[in-house]
């Protein structure tokens, strides 16, 4: 059969192209544009070349925020992934418990991020907060406003409370798709609880876990709203993550050039790390 050459097809993809252009490509290019220029207001711009990038990469403020971010993401992943798997494994597989658990799990995910921040901001206060007051009443000196360690603990507990459900729900979806015959065969083969987890449940959860790890990494690396509401980046700069720093630079100080350069670097880091995660996990899969 003759192939039909028809350029009309381009019209069909045009709406998507326009949409992507306005929602992603054009804003991104604006940022690129700012990142190589300097301005003193009045819409007057000067060519700055790679100056902002050089300044950024040699600034200790940027690297400190970056290290904080990496540590935060590492802690978040190493708590939420095992905890999420553990909860998913212990959730009921049938009966009235299923909808109850699912709704309970979904609740934190439905709360707007700044509300989550506000809840914990109040919850942790040592004058009127339930948590803060009683922890102090127990004789533990806890004050997230003044103590960097307490601030970190608060933010991490908050994030675990907010997002572990996502990992749970994804893992649960993977678990319920395992046919009963696998568990029965494992019983017959005399497999221990650990062997069932290691050789049946974990392999079946692998794909959803990959998605969970990627989502949780990206989200935790980009975290902004909740710590901003709870600690505002403090005490000092102890909870100032890249995104908070970025907003301070762009909107607080109105340094568009450095902020744009920072956005691009931030964007590239997330892209790179996501790619690394993805490649490592899929390659591991292919090798086995």
């Amino acid at each position: 059969m003759e192939k039909t050459w028809n350029n009309k097809a381009w019209f069909l993809v045009l709406p998507v192209l326009v949409l992507v252009a306005f929602s992603a490509v054009i804003p991104l290019m604006t940022v690129v544009n700012y990142s190589v220029q300097d301005t003193f207001g009045n819409n007057v711009f000067f060519w700055a070349g790679t100056e902002w990038f050089e300044e950024l990469l040699s600034s200790s403020r940027f690297w400190e925020a970056m290290v904080r971010n990496l540590i935060f993401s590492f802690i978040i992943l190493s708590i939420q992934v095992p905890l999420g798997i553990f909860i998913a494994l212990n959730m009921p597989k049938k009966g009235w418990g299923v909808p109850v658990c699912l709704v309970l799990m979904a609740l934190p995910l439905l709360i707007p991020w700044n509300v989550v921040g506000t809840i914990w901001q109040v919850f942790g206060r040592n004058d009127i907060g339930l948590l803060g007051y009683y922890v102090n009443a127990l004789g533990i000196d806890y004050n997230y406003v003044q103590d960097p360690f307490d601030a970190w603990v608060t933010i991490i507990i908050m994030d675990v409370w907010h997002w572990t459900s996502l990992v749970v729900l994804l893992c649960y979806a993977g678990l319920v798709s395992i046919p009963d015959a696998f568990y029965q065969a494992a019983k017959i083969d005399g497999a221990s609880r650990w062997a069932v987890f290691r050789y049946i449940q974990l392999p079946k959860m692998q794909r959803v876990l990959l998605i969970a790890v990627l989502l949780r990494f990206m989200d935790s690396f980009m975290i902004y709203t909740e710590p901003f509401v709870v600690t505002g980046g403090g005490p000092g700069n102890s909870t100032t993550f890249l995104s908070i720093d970025l907003v301070k630079t762009a909107l607080g100080q109105f340094d568009l050039g450095p902020a744009a350069a920072m956005s691009l670097v931030y964007f590239l880091i997330i892209l790179l790390l996501s790619w690394v995660f993805y490649t490592v996990m899929t390659n591991y899969d292919a090798e086995r």
Partner: peptide, 27 residues
Amino acid sequence: IAQVFQFPVIYDTMTVYDNLAFPLRNR
């Protein structure tokens, strides 16, 4: 006892050899 199910149950992260060794190693 041993049972073979309607749909093949294999431990797909293992090799054929390890699949067969599994019930013995568990014991």
